[in-house]
Amino acid sequence: MTERERMALHRGLATWGERLVPLADFRRAAAAAGRDLSPEERAAALRAATAVLPDTTPVEGPWSRIAVCGGIYNNHLGLAALLDDAARRGAEAVYCLGDLGGFGPSPEKVWPLLLQGDVRTIQGNYEESLASGREDCNCGYTDPRDNHFAAVSYGYTARHASADFKAWMGRLPMRRRVRVGERELLLVHGSPRRINEFLFASTAPVPFLETLLDRNACDALLCTHTGLHWHRRLPSGRDVVNVGVIGRPANDGTTAVWYALLDARPGGGLAVELVPLAYDHPALAAEMRREGLPEEFVETILTGWWTTCLEILPARERALSRY
């Protein structure tokens, strides 16, 4: 068949599977398929699709000021700096949203700092994977290069974290609910739906977030997992905060890492501050080299630019990236 013949094939006809049928036949069959609901049934279907999900997580607090950090990635120097900074700023409690390991050196050094600092931690995909003996970090990469470096990073942490530390990780809760002033905050790793769901600023639109907060009945949602911090105040007055990570810089050409401070406001509001944190990053880089970790990881610590796992970045975030 010539291209011209092929193009003329559908004139006045419809494709129904592999058949060509008169257009009217297809449209009649399509119109008869499915079922249109009554206005009452439609309203009920919408209610069911956006109904509040059951959740028996106990509520902690109330606090008037807390510090919340994301992935630590074995950066014990960053964690020590965070504990000092949070105390200096008067945080009454420190929370961590998981991903204690990966990327950085000497996994076991983070554990005593978490215990001494009374850091209230939840599981990230790293803890879930390490505690259950998974072969990989379940980060969800598809690019072969990203998967190579994810495997190096996970393998190193899996070999160097003790069985006791891993068992402790497995006992951490998957989420926490925390009261700050009059606001109830839901703390998760990726999203309330999935431990490894990415919530980036450019792909977490307002309607999606409003529904997520409706379904999970909270005034603010705090998450990490992407490595990039952002805050969005929703039209409903609620907040979504990706607290970023203290394990590596935020792909912005500076060596600072980021965490969040949440403050109760008089009158019931919530103040959100994203805080850049300096720490002894040359010392971390030196320790990473001693441990034989990839030079690509060290470069990120020293330059502030990500060199690996860039595939996960949406178009907007990727456009701001050096690599």
Binding site: G17, A33, D36, A45
Partner: peptide, 16 residues
């Protein structure tokens, strides 16, 4: 192109 895969006229009709 499969009429049987049509679920309704609006999104609310097609949530099943």
């Amino acid at each position: 192109n499969e009429p049987a895969a049509r679920m309704g006229s609006t999104l609310a009709d097609a949530l099943g």
